[in-house]
Simulated scan of single mutants.
Amino acid sequence: MPSSANAAVGEFLYSTGPLPGIPAGIADPESRVCHNLYGATETDPAYAPKNLTNATATAFLDFDCAGDTYYVIAPGRVLGNRLKLRSVIFS
């Protein structure tokens, strides 16, 4: 039987494409697993993340949760269009 300890409860929302953007998101994302963001591309990253989960999210500029450019997003935090990301992992 799966438990909520294996997933962040809630939604992680973001936008893709030109402003004002196309809304996208992940519902109840699995914890400790890297999630490449649907709609993000090499030329156009996702942006404007909203961590509406109960877990801390670490957002990476690169795919596969790689690279030195990342930002830690606390649960409930909503950030603006300036933060660019292509992948995310939840605690």
Rank of each mutant, 00 (worst) to 15 (best):
S3R: 05
S3C: 01
A5R: 08
G10Y: 03
E11T: 15
E11Q: 15
L13E: 08
Y14P: 02
Y14M: 11
Y14V: 08
S15T: 14
T16S: 04
G17I: 04
G17M: 08
L19E: 11
G21R: 10
I22F: 05
I22R: 10
P23E: 09
A24K: 14
I26S: 02
I26E: 10
I26Y: 02
A27K: 14
A27H: 09
P29K: 04
S31G: 00
H35D: 05
H35E: 07
H35W: 11
A40I: 11
T41I: 01
E42Q: 14
P45F: 00
P45S: 12
Y47L: 04
Y47I: 10
A48W: 00
P49G: 12
P49S: 01
K50M: 08
A55R: 14
A55G: 03
A55W: 06
A57E: 13
F60G: 01
F60A: 06
F60C: 00
D62M: 09
D62S: 13
F63H: 05
D64C: 04
A66I: 02
A66S: 15
Y70M: 13
Y71T: 15
G76M: 06
L79H: 05
G80C: 05
R82Y: 03
R82I: 10
L83S: 09
L85H: 06
R86C: 10
R86W: 00
R86T: 02
S87R: 01
V88D: 11
V88I: 09
